[in-house]
Design a protein around this nucleic acid. Sequence first.
DNA 1: TACTATTTGTTCGTATGTATA
DNA 2: GTATACATACGAACAAATAGT
Lengths: 136, 136
Amino acid sequence: MSIDRRSHTPVYRQLANLIREGIYAGQYVAGAPLPSEVTLSQEYGVGRDAVRQALALLRSEGLVSTERGERSRVRVPPERVSVELPPGGRAVARMPADPERVERDMDEGVPVIEVHHPDGTTEVHPGDKTELIRPA
Amino acid sequence: MSIDRRSHTPVYRQLANLIREGIYAGQYVAGAPLPSEVTLSQEYGVGRDAVRQALALLRSEGLVSTERGERSRVRVPPERVSVELPPGGRAVARMPADPERVERDMDEGVPVIEVHHPDGTTEVHPGDKTELIRPA
DNA sequence: TACTATTTGTTCGTATGTATA
DNA sequence: GTATACATACGAACAAATAGT
């Protein structure tokens, strides 16, 4: 599979699909670095801008993480800690605002879970490390 | 408050912070269109690229939505439907992959909630229209 | 320590396409 | 049909962080 210039699907989205499928297929191993942006742009014959947009899309899905000076890596899903939803409690999921995300030291593309207790208090948990449970 | 070119914080992130605060403060009303990208770039004295990156950041937070040919709008939070977490059930939150997001007709910056039942079945709900509850 | 090479981040410029009003 | 506005795509230059020499 490769990039189709005549497709109505944007190049960067096609590229994101290719890389995503590569991750699902195990072609790119979790925790391992992807090829550099320049390498990807040469391999697929697209501009660096398209590569960066594709990687940004995958970051927003929580599939890869990028740090300055290092190649992007396939994100390793962390272990989940069980949190009980209390009787009479409610929970919602939302994306954190950027300053909040940085404050909580969370990766891009990771939602937060807000647990609202009957007494009015609220707990916020990182969505990638949390599993909401209700005992049987 | 305005843009500080000498700050270590990138221009687009500063701009995103300004617009976000403007939304929180009610300066930009929910459902109303923001100024156009060109207008914003002139008002704040930054490049259009910085404006687009700022808006992309706010979209990824589910704070604004953008459609081609129209100015970006402050997103209106939809009503939430209550979904009961069943006894013995588990729930996680994650970002949908782009094709899945398009398939489900969801806005950018909106997570999904996966509810896993004890019998092994799974339900997927849009995070902006769902509230997970446990009866008292 | 210092230096170099690699890599990602930011910013600007330019052009073209596509959808809306 | 025209004007406005957002989307895509390429190139280029420089900054900043990393890793290794």
